[in-house]
Design a protein around this nucleic acid. Structure first.
Lengths: 238, 238
DNA sequence: TAGTGGTCTAGACCACATA
DNA sequence: ATGTGGTCTAGACCACTAG
């Protein structure tokens, strides 16, 4: 058998394919290592190594004695995986979200490129504010490709407690896997100031995110404005 | 508390010990997998797994056909591992650093706690500006425990082209392994504005870093002010 | 008790770099 | 040609979870 990649990478690709094709859905248990090894005609160790990589990337979750599961954004542990904002002091307060606006619109050129939209394809713009404890601390502007998310609504979004990726996963079968963020410091304009309850000219953290699903397909562009008076963006450098 | 750790974790700890004790120094080749397996009385696979983990953490670097090496901050590839600032457009410009100030002083209470200083222990404060291309883009204030870095000087620092971790590694035998950063948006005060060549009140990204060497020992506290007019802080969310 | 993931071994062979 | 890391196998046994 001619091979261009190590066996365990080919197996990894086959598993990813089954995940993308939704043979196994978020929350599901996938076949045991022994079964997968038999299915793909490789040794236990090779199947295991493929799973190892996917577990390291948070695509799969292993639970000793129980099985290996497809990661889900609806699981508690994953709900804050992509929110790097933390209070300066104390634990994470309860989080509340409110949708301000949700409408169809035309993308900017940059956005169309980032989302790899076809010419003329529309986007859904959603604006929402997140409260950390008392005050609004984050204002998000979220753009999604309209065709892939037909039926997206403020009501649906809010029914998932503002967990966008949970909503996308459960209702549209789209799993967000990774994201890139670009941060700048900016001054609050009247729009942001009003919503966040701060003065115009307050320094805000502007967070531009592009997120991706299987096969490096972009699914979301987001701009967040974070009030960092009592919170900070935490990052770990390895 | 698990009393028993897997063998490969114990081997990993033994290798880390040898690294901390400088049996193998940055840039050195460590013994081959076969030799290590023999030395520790385990199989090839187990020694390999220990090395795998350390390579994943960027403590060791594997090079097929050549050997396994101790990572060094003086290697090209590692020089920007901890600088997340990038130009909005174009490639990384040439980087120039200039030390503005370097003196002994007393730590604040917070800093003393973060660096785990003994009561009365002094710190070295270094202020330096980094130019990305033309303009100063980063102002760093760096605090180091004075006792561990006796002989630290602006001249020494600059002779390493402003590569702090290269200087610390080569002259003081201290290897920085990981860091934590906390980001906020702030307004430029006159101090920062002057050095960075911006107006007072310009929004700046304030980056607070604590960095660690072996055994989670903190070695540096740093506050950076980043001008994000033409640059951004890039982060990858897995 | 049965089934799952987790560890460890011993050995074969491949891919790559250097002399 | 030699020595290094990289892959793959087959099988044994351990640790954990659930019925």
């Amino acid at each position: 058998m001619p091979t261009f990649a190590p066996l365990y990478r080919q197996i990894r690709a086959l598993i990813l394919r089954s995940l993308k094709d939704r043979e196994w859905k978020p929350g599901d248990m996938i076949p045991s290592e022994t079964e997968l090894a038999a299915r793909f005609g490789v040794s236990h160790g090779t199947a295991r190594r493929a799973i190892d990589e996917l577990a390291a990337e948070n695509v799969l979750v292993r639970r000793q004695g129980r099985g290996t599961f497809v990661a889900s954004h609806l699981q508690r542990v994953n709900q804050f995986r992509f929110l790097k904002l933390r209070p300066d002091e104390g634990d994470l307060e309860s989080l509340g979200g409110k949708v301000l606006e949700c409408r169809r619109t035309r993308p900017t050129a940059t956005m169309a490129r980032q989302l790899r939209l076809r010419p003329g394809e529309a986007v859904i713009l959603t604006r929402r504010v997140l409260r950390f404890g008392e005050k609004g601390t984050v204002l998000d502007e979220i753009w999604l490709p309209a065709e892939r998310f037909k039926g997206f609504s403020a009501e649906g979004f809010e029914s998932y407690q503002g967990l966008l990726y949970g909503y996308l996963e459960a209702e549209f079968g789209v799993q967000m896997l990774r994201a890139e963020e670009r941060l700048k410091a900016v001054l609050a304009q009247s729009e942001q100031a009003e919503v966040l309850g701060v003065e115009v000219g307050t320094p805000l953290l502007q967070v531009d995110r592009v997120s991706f699903t299987y096969e490096e397909q972009p699914v979301e562009v987001r701009r967040g404005y974070y009030d960092t008076a009592r919170h900070h963006y935490f990052n770990h450098l390895g």
